[in-house]
Computed example of a mutant assay.
Amino acid sequence: MKKRHLTSALALTTVAALALVGCASGTTGTSDASGDKPAGDKGTITLGFLPGWTDGLSTAYLLQDQLEKMGYTVEMDTLTDAGPLYTGLAKGDVDIYPSAWPEVTHKKYMDKFGDKIEDLGKYYDNAKLTIAVPEYTKIDSIEDLKGNADMFGGKIVGIEPGAGLTEQTQKHMLPEYGLTDEYELVTSSTAAMLAELKKATDAKKDIVVTLWRPFWANSAFPVKDLKDPKGAMGEPEGLHFLGTKGFSEKNADAAAFIKKIKLTDEQYGALEGLVTSDEYKDKSADAVDKWISEYADQLDWLQK
């Protein structure tokens, strides 16, 4: 993935801020006489995602493009945390979560709601949670954080309180490395974390943040993952498409198509890079079209 201008971070901050005040759930649309589906098409599918988590942002727009080509009306429902998203999925207010981490990071939500959720397939198998610092910071391992709290003001800058990354950091990484008494994990939002990361790296100051891969910020900012010799941040896991229970029965062709989707590191990075780039700001559909034009010959699952 190519380096992008850091203004992408600010653009995403704006999107996430809007999501905080524009959050909604459920579907809308004009139904036919039976009340089951909107008139004149296959029905409405609602995609629920967090704008600040650009794995889901990217695949949401990819699914919108492909499902609309199949004849569905697609609605985009932006939420602000994983908990409400899984709740909406379990209740049927959201039909698809287009980039879930159900194996480890979101396991607690799957334990709670799994019997009301369908797994529509794993599309990527190398996602991981990380602790990161700027490239110029003179430590290379999470172990090196111990005794160096003054470098970072005693703070690790995190994301949303309900994120699996937050829980993994708080309940596993900090105690396993003996950092609980030295560091405070500061949580708010992905957008706020990115703003702090930009401020620090612009000033060449030290900062430690919670990050993950794949995520465009790893290329947009001069950061490096800290080594994790204890494996406290967990093993790499798969990213899945999740559907509300009964989705496959109601939308068999859509479910069958979604289960075929697979993305390599290169393909995924290119998609996320275009969707979050300055060039395609507020034009995510155009970004997907550009990506499809570049990778169509590699993707035998695409709707033509």
Rank of each mutant, 00 (worst) to 15 (best):
L185H: 07
G154N: 01
L145N: 09
G234E: 12
I131F: 02
G243Q: 10
K198T: 09
D206G: 07
I207K: 11
L242K: 05
I159F: 00
P229T: 03
S219W: 08
A203W: 05
Y183V: 07
D144Q: 07
A195L: 09
E143K: 15
P236A: 10
F241Q: 08
F152R: 09
D181I: 03
K198S: 06
N218K: 06
T190L: 01
P161Q: 00
G238W: 00
A192E: 15
Y183T: 07
P222Q: 10
L242Y: 09
A149N: 05
D225S: 11
T201G: 02
P236V: 06
S141P: 07
D125F: 11
G164R: 02
A192L: 12
Y123N: 07
D150F: 04
L185N: 03
G178N: 13
D228R: 12
V186I: 14
M233R: 07
T137H: 04
W212R: 13
R213T: 11
S141V: 04
E143G: 05
D140K: 13
E143L: 15
P236W: 04
L211R: 06
F152Y: 12
K224T: 04
P236F: 04
I131G: 02
E176M: 14
S141C: 06
V157N: 01
G178D: 09
N218E: 09
S188T: 10
A132H: 00
K204I: 08
A220V: 07
K227T: 13
D140E: 14
I156Q: 07
I131Q: 04
G234L: 09
E235Y: 10
V133H: 04
D225I: 05
K230L: 14
A195G: 04
G162T: 13
D140Q: 14
T130E: 12
L242I: 08
V223C: 02
I159W: 00
G234I: 04
T130L: 15
A163K: 01
G234F: 11
T210L: 06
R213P: 01
P236M: 05
K230A: 15
N126P: 03
D144W: 01
N148F: 04
K230C: 12
E196K: 09
P229E: 02
N148K: 15
